[in-house]
Amino acid sequence: MISVDEAQARLLALVTPLPPVERDLMQAVRHYLHAPLMAMRTQPAADLSAMDGYAIAVQDFPGPWRVIGESAAGHPFAGDLQRGEAVRIFTGAYVPQNADSVLIQENAARDGDMLNATLDHPPVFGANIRRLGGDFHAGDAVLPKGTYLDAGAIAVAAMAGHGRLMVGGVPRIAIAATGDELVPAGSAIGPAQIPCSNSPMLQAMLAGLPCDVRDAGILLDDLTALETSLSALCEQVDIIVTTGGASVGDHDLVQTALMNIGAQMDFWKVAMRPGKPLMAGKVGNTVVLGLPGNPSSAFVTAFLFLLPLIRHMAGCNAPLPAYFEAATFTDLPAGGERAEYMRATVEGGHITPFLSQDSGLTRTLSQANALLVQQPNVPPRAKGSVVQYMPLS
């Protein structure tokens, strides 16, 4: 068996990021930025008012000022302020030349064209003004390479003047469940049959990533049929994900089928719990990733291996899950020979693992928001000890 860290490194080394593609702004959502994004404009492009009020010079406080015009967003005041003058101004409007503060309207008393402050102290220099370039300047790198393009990143790209973006490529994924006992979710269940939960679960896990996913159905425990189906998939996708059939039983035929169609297996069996019978390799240019069949095992191994593989191929610079720390809300036993990834909940700086970590359970998957990481051979830890975890969001 190899460690989780070594297995992750070897899996990512099997592939290189896909060539970039150019997409419209909204089509780029949930992709990874291919190169640093440079601002094409300065934002704000001028000093702008942050509030509704009056543009003034602080040295004239407390007035009176004579209101000589108006500045609204998209309709700036054309002239310059002179001593004792003010301009009515609205949020987002250009600040006139020679004005150095905005007196908000709640602190102003106006009678016709005459204005006085109702404050007992002057506003600070620059009060309520968004300065030119306060967000960024033209030529600034506003987003680093590999940024995941969520709503905030799209807002920055748009404000920086971009309507199209170069993003990483989109891996093509086929998900195939294996096992004679499986039937599609929602189908009638016969004796000794169970619904196929792994395929819809994996598709849900991949929904936020830039990839094209196809459900390759349920493959029966028949060596010839497996070889035929897997060989055909290798011609169509970048990654084949199988669930089940990766262990050592008489009906675990996936690895044999893969090797019979020319797979070069890189590793099989990882020192982790759940998920020990994980395997990975390549058939030609297609990566094959064999996940265990038990739902929690499939979930944990997909989180630790499949998601990072897709992120890496799609251009993410940091594809592996991040570690955080929290205080355990329960005593923890000593670690075994394998790293353990315990379904848990994190709340208020404390983490609580579920009492049962049986890999066949699905209900805890709906309740967990973290994996508590128990490294091999760690000593017992008392309640309140600081432990590592990975958030599942």
Rank of each mutant, 00 (worst) to 15 (best):
V241R: 03
I68E: 02
L103N: 00
G169D: 00
R30E: 14
I56F: 01
T243H: 04
G360Q: 02
S385P: 14
Q255D: 11
L11P: 03
L33N: 04
S3R: 07
P292A: 05
V283H: 05
A9N: 10
H162D: 06
Q388G: 09
L307Q: 05
Y32C: 02
I261H: 12
P292R: 03
P391E: 10
N377G: 12
F61K: 00
A280T: 03
V102W: 00
P171F: 11
Q264W: 13
A177I: 08
E340H: 09
G74H: 07
R214F: 09
A9F: 06
Q193G: 12
M272L: 14
D100R: 03
P17V: 04
T352A: 15
P36M: 04
L278A: 02
L361V: 07
F77W: 02
R66N: 07
D60S: 01
R311W: 00
T286R: 03
N294T: 15
D238I: 07
T256C: 08
N317Q: 15
F305V: 07
L18P: 12
R110C: 00
A246D: 11
P191N: 07
A327W: 06
T345Q: 15
V346S: 06
G179C: 10
H31Y: 10
I68S: 03
T364F: 13
G179L: 06
P36A: 02
R10Y: 08
T16N: 07
G134N: 14
T301E: 08
A127I: 05
F77M: 03
D60I: 02
H121M: 10
S229R: 15
G262H: 01
L206R: 09
H121D: 13
V58F: 05
G293R: 01
L226A: 15
I240E: 01
M342Y: 11
T16S: 08
D180M: 11
